[in-house]
């Protein structure tokens, strides 16, 4: 039976990523491990303030020891979270959601499309793919941000750019004079890539408005609907498929999602 008791955890490290986002490294107390999958989420709990769902940004392999959460200060809980420092205690429930179907995609080309904060959940997939690089063929990474200062995980992204094992393309909607990469919306990056549609698996996470345009581009390249995966984020409140906030049509994203293939999502009128 499920109850709402969170597991106690400790903040191990806090890193400022941009002016709005911080990366928190968390360790569960009592030697517990999270055992999550890429694109799953946890509910962070601060007693007296409440709970909020946050995607896990670190890959499963590290999960035994610690995990990372990239948090934008937006609401009550995330603002309070930003005031925390090393050794502070938080509560964790989860991990929840189905996560990315990594078992099914071995031996394929992986196309990852991350818009804005979408890089936070996708970083768990990217790092997983890089750690088990041999399991996958080509890895293509498209990253979009509003402006250069909003780009998350800047050092890592630069490393990925230099890494020959991964083809990275980055764009911003509005550049500043120092910007040397692409400019324009993320769909513009599809001009620069060629993919083999028969063996490509796509993973998309971004702001709600982004999905349909990116899906259109990927479908135009000939990728199968069932091979395009979307991570849809809603206001997950309970994580157990009851409270109703994350329901889209007949499914609860916290249980049956947040990762859906486009083949599934297309049948849900409220999904996209």
């Amino acid at each position: 039976m499920f109850n709402f008791l969170p597991m106690p955890a400790t903040v191990i490290d806090v890193r400022q990523l941009t002016d709005k986002e911080r990366l928190f490294t968390i360790r569960l107390d009592h030697g517990r491990s999270l055992r999550h999958r890429p694109c799953q989420f946890v509910l962070i709990s601060l007693f007296g303030i409440g709970e909020a769902p946050i995607s896990i940004s670190s890959p499963p392999v590290d999960s035994g020891k610690t995990f990372e959460l990239c948090i934008r200060s937006m609401g009550n809980l995330t603002n309070a979270m930003h005031k925390l420092s090393v050794n502070d205690k938080i509560g964790i429930r989860g991990p929840y959601g189905n996560g990315f179907p990594i078992e099914k995609i071995g031996g394929k080309d992986i196309l990852i499309v991350a818009g804005g904060l979408g890089l936070a959940p996708l970083r768990s997939l990217i790092k997983h793919v890089l750690q088990e690089r041999g399991r996958y063929k080509r890895v293509i990474l498209l990253i979009g941000a509003k402006k250069p200062g909003d780009l998350l995980f800047r050092e890592e992204v630069s490393e990925w750019e230099r890494d020959p094992a991964i083809e990275t393309h980055i764009t911003v909607d509005a550049a500043d004079p120092s910007w040397t990469r692409h400019v324009g919306v993320i769909t513009g990056l599809f001009r620069h890539i060629s993919i083999d549609p028969l063996k490509t698996i796509a993973a998309i996470v971004g702001p709600p408005v982004m999905y349909r345009f990116v899906i259109r581009e990927i479908l135009a390249k000939g990728v199968f609907e069932g091979n395009i995966y979307l991570d849809l984020e809603r206001r997950m409140r309970c994580g157990i498929g009851k409270c109703g906030h994350c329901q889209i049509n007949g499914i609860y994203l916290c249980q049956n999602g947040p990762v859906l293939s486009y083949l599934e999502a297309r049948k849900l009128q409220e999904a996209l």
Binding site: F4, F47, G48, E51, C243, G244, H245, Q247
Partner: peptide
């Protein structure tokens, strides 16, 4: 109907509190 929201309430002593579930509606 069983949709709900979860919220915290703190006792005036600022030491203890409760996490409650209240009915919510779609």
């Amino acid at each position: 109907c069983y949709c709900f929201d979860v919220s915290d309430e703190i006792c005036p002593d600022m030491e203890k509190g409760v996490r409650t579930r209240r009915w919510d509606g779609c």
